[in-house]
Design a protein around this nucleic acid. Structure first.
Length: 877
RNA sequence: GGGGAUUUAGCUCAGUUGGUCAGAGCACCUGCCUUGCACGCAGGGGGUCAAGGGUUCGACUCCCUUAAUCUCCA
């Protein structure tokens, strides 16, 4: 059975059990500071389990794309080395929210595996929670009982498991419960006869594996650690799709299934290194296949590789694959992007976002590959230098600090460093390297240490009511608060029963403002959303938190933000009209000051196109289109209205639709009521942000006016300075031409003046011993010309001693120069001389032994200084 | 969020305790020689040394602030 069929069988099986099939949530998580990626099928239902949100359906099933880069089975550096680690995987899951429980969950799992998929019963094992006396939790006899009726007499296929394997918890507190894992024994008959499967479960054998975990959520763990029974019990299951396919397709490795084989075959073809012939090549192919999948899906979800947080994780994964291609397969040019059509072919059916964005994903990956190959090239040059130096000094032990610098500052992978060292019969001081790495880790950890104290709950409230769409002030009560210490600074997080403050979301920044009661006023510096809570940041805690407060949003900032947000929608619409419908939003930032919009487009946006977009948006502003907002619109209805939805964005069942004429978007942000109040829209920059992604920044309203006025004022100033009513452009180009010819003239004149001054000096030069002293006070010359003159004389007369000075606008400059021969015979040093006489002009000086300069504030002292220096020369002659 | 690095001509980059130091190669322009696959020779144009402050007689160079990019860690 093909992988795509297996997935379909799963979904249709649970559809037949009255489950609603929902699409996979995006793999990249946007609005949860605690989690960057979806790492389990249940993530998107977290709020339901926490009781923050009612379930839309009692029974749900889906296939969820997940990403894990750390954890016991998913350490990034392990992927590819063996046959079962992955960064990205799919998890098949079925859920019951207060509906069916252990009996159905177990029976259906059994039915699906043994009847639908036909896995031999004698190869299946199930584990149940053995109980925990300390917590006073009994063995899960209930689950064991249902398993018994499945396995019948084969009772040794039911195995007790410890708290570690068979008790699932969401976090330190919250919903939890016992679970039952289903394991499959894929070993050969002879091996199984030798050592029965029930002894092999959970021993880490690659062919005796867990494929499905059924979690029975029946407890809530309170902050004190004690468990309480939940009134509503839930089922949460997760089955590793890749493993299941390996079982069904009778393979020894996930990578041998038809999920990965096409990719691996393509990789083998492109690199010319067949799979299955060479261990090193095979590892590289597995790494490439796994990582390409992860990166492609992330980009499809709108997460581009970047240099921090989630984007950085993606970049690191891609680079790891490039590294394997580079060292193991000898690939020196980008190639992974060319495997994308194969991926789309195998997975694009179930995940349409892949096919829809193939073009941009390809470009992004190719660009990233190129960028990393450049980084590698630079690193290679640096390490070669260091190796050469070490070789010359006869050493063979490469310092750990150097390797760390290459790695930390220039991103040069340490395993590549080791490879190169081996080729040069050198070794790396690994201990020193690791020590440096640890220093860096500790520093980062210390910095990141934020201690959030427990919430102080004043009132129980499920979620905050946002009232800010139609008002900027409201009467509120604080329902909970907590103290947060971050880098020695104390802040407070406040949660209200209702709030007019908009929490940062959808690119729009959080509101600022204050809350006030009868006798105090507290500033709110930012507002963010954490799951279902709207958190207000405050520098201090009210003296009486339980008092009622008036919450007041900075309404002028809010109005500016609304102008920019609406303008963003209008521009998005205009961009699609001007450039084409391939324009997809890739990112957005809306602040009171400006708006920034990233979108997919493959060429530079020409000035003409920019102008056209601006014109369209301003036209929509002048037409004063009223806003139309529909709250709680079902998703499909919204899409039918032509609303633009974003890939990689998770929408609930009901969405908010914001439209201005033809611009229709799903959006939770705050907007103006009529486009006319935007006033004016002006694009201030356009540029590239990644391959196939452009960025536009723009301003509106008073910001746009200020921008234009600034430009106009500059132009007015220029025109005024030109004292001409003519075209300033023509005037300036004329000026520039004049300027350049004048500069040449001046240069010539200065040269001849310097030559003339030199001649005069030469005429007045005094022969003293074997040297000639050129001394004197020149006028109206800069220090630079003085230097030039001295230099010229030095060059033409190696027996010269030059001591000259000039006064310029109350400042005195002096230069002392020595010809090569003069310096040799007298043993004089220009630096010492100039320092000795600089005091006479109240200044200081220095330079090189043969040519030194000085400057001071007392031009009157110049003649004395020169005389003194001449005196010094005469003394040694 | 923290550490490190980078920012110099259109491009790729040199620039040594602060002082004839604003450079090279490629590209461009002109002329000559040649007609050809990176031709050669001679000459030339092109710079806010990322931005803004500061120290100094003097700053590409030292200090501070800011920005962008790269990179590692969280």
């Amino acid at each position: 059975m093909k992988a795509n069929d297996i997935r379909e069988e799963f979904l249709s099986f649970f559809r037949s059990k009255e489950h609603t099939i929902v699409p996979s949530a995006p793999m990249v998580i946007k609005n949860d500071p605690t989690l960057m990626f979806t790492n389990a099928g249940m993530n998107q239902f977290k709020d339901i389990f926490l009781g923050n949100q009612p379930a839309s359906h009692k029974r749900i099933a889906n296939s969820q794309k997940c990403l894990r880069v750390s954890g016991k089975h998913n350490d990034l550096e392990e992927v590819g080395l063996d046959t079962y680690h992955h960064t990205m995987f799919e998890m098949l899951g079925n859920w019951s929210f207060g509906d069916y429980f252990k009996k159905e969950a177990i029976e259906w799992a059994w039915e699906f595996l043994t009847v639908v998929l036909g896995i031999p019963v004698e190869r299946i094992y199930a584990t149940v929670f053995e109980g925990d006396a300390e917590q006073d939790v009994p063995r899960d006899d209930e689950a064991a009982g249902f398993w018994k009726s499945c396995f019948r007499e084969a009772e040794n296929h039911i195995i007790d498991g410890s708290k570690k394997d068979n008790f699932w918890e969401m976090g330190d507190t919250g919903p939890c419960g016992p679970c039952s894992e289903i394991h499959v024994d894929l070993r050969s008959d002879s091996e199984r006869a030798e050592k029965p499967g029930h002894l092999m479960v959970n021993t880490g054998h690659p062919l005796v594996i867990e494929i499905w975990n059924l979690v029975f959520i029946q407890y809530n763990r309170r902050a004190g650690g004690e468990l309480e029974l939940l009134p509503e019990k839930h089922v949460d299951t997760g089955m590793g799709f890749e493993r299941l396919c390996m079982v069904i397709q009778n393979k020894k490795s996930n990578y041998d299934t038809d999920i990965f084989q096409p990719l691996i075959a393509a990789s083998a073809r492109v690199t010319g290194k067949p799979y299955g012939e060479n261990n090193e090549w095979d590892t590289a192919h597995r790494v490439i296949a796994d990582h390409l999948r992860t990166v492609a899906f992330s980009v499809a979800d709108g997460q581009l590789p970047s240099n921090n947080r989630a984007g950085y994780v993606i970049r690191r994964i891609l680079r790891r694959a490039v590294r394997y291609g580079y060292t193991s397969l000898g690939m020196r040019e980008p190639f992974m992007y060319s495997l994308l059509p194969t991926l789309t072919e195998t997975m694009g059916g179930h995940y349409p976002e892949l096919a829809a964005q193939e073009g941009i994903i390809t470009r992004v990956i190719r660009e990233e590959e190129q960028a990393f190959l450049r980084t590698l090239g630079k690193g290679l040059r640096m390490i070669e230098q260091k190796v050469k130096a070490l070789k010359q000094s006869g050493g063979t032990r490469f310092p750990g600090s150097d390797a760390f610098e290459l790695f930390d500052t220039y991103g040069f992978p340490v395993d590549l460093t080791q490879l190169i060292l081996r080729e040069n019969s050198m070794t790396l001081d690994e201990e020193a390297f690791r020590a440096e790495l640890n220093v860096q880790k500790n520093r980062s950890r210390d910095d990141a240490a934020v201690s959030a104290e427990d919430w102080v709950v004043l009132e129980e409230a499920e979620s905050t009511l946002f009232t800010g769409y139609d008002r900027t002030e409201d009467n509120i009560r604080i329902v909970r608060y907590r103290r947060v210490i971050s880098r020695g600074k104390e802040t407070f997080h406040l949660v209200f029963d209702r709030t007019p403050f908009y929490a940062e979301s959808g690119g729009q920044t959080g509101d600022k403002g204050y809350i006030t009661s009868e006798d105090e006023k507290i500033r709110i510096t930012d507002t963010v959303r954490e799951n279902n809570l709207i958190i207000h940041f405050a520098g201090q805690l009210p003296k009486k938190p339980s008092a009622g407060f008036r919450a007041v949003v900075d309404s002028s900032a809010r109005r500016d933000t609304a102008r920019n947000h609406t303008a963003t929608h209008l521009m998005h619409h205009a961009l699609r009209e001007v450039l084409g419908s391939h324009v997809e939003q890739k990112g957005s930032l809306v602040t009171p000051e400006r708006l920034r919009f990233d979108f997919s487009h493959f060429r530079q946006v020409t000035p003409e196109e920019i102008a056209a977009v601006e014109e369209k948006v301003n036209e929509m502003i002048m037409n004063n289109i009223p806003s139309e907002v529909h709250d709680d619109t079902p998703v499909n209805e919204a899409l039918a209205m032509g609303a633009i939805a974003l890939f990689g964005e998770k929408y609930g069942e009901k969405v908010r639709v914001v439209s201005f004429g033809d611009s229709v978007e799903l959006c939770g942000g705050t907007h103006v009521s009529d486009t006319g109040s935007i006033g004016l829209f002006k694009i201030i920059s356009e540029g590239a942000v990644a391959a196939g992604v452009r960025r536009i920044e723009a301003v509106t309203g008073s910001g746009a006016l200020a921008y234009l006025n600034g430009k106009l004022n500059k132009l007015n100033e220029i025109t005024a300075m030109l004292r001409s009513t003519g075209d300033p452009v023509a005037n300036i180009s004329k000026l520039l031409a004049e300027n350049s010819s004048l500069r040449q003239t001046i240069e010539r004149m200065q040269n001849s003046a310097a030559a003339e001054a030199g001649r005069r000096l030469a005429a007045g030069a005094v022969t003293a011993g074997s040297c000639r002293i050129y001394s004197g006070l020149l006028d109206a010359t800069t220090a630079e010309i003085l230097r030039n003159i001295a230099h010229q004389i030095r060059e033409s007369d190696s027996s010269s001693i030059i001591i000259i000075g000039t006064a310029d606008e109350g400042k005195a400059s002096m230069v002392i120069g020595l010809g090569d021969k003069a310096a040799g015979t007298t043993g004089l040093n220009a630096v010492e001389m100039i320092k000795a006489v600089a005091a006479d002009i109240s200044g200081g000086g220095g330079g090189q032994p043969l040519l030194a300069t000085a400057g001071g504030k007392k031009p009157g002292g110049l003649s004395d200084a020169i005389a003194k220096a001449v005196e010094m020369v005469r003394k040694v002659l």
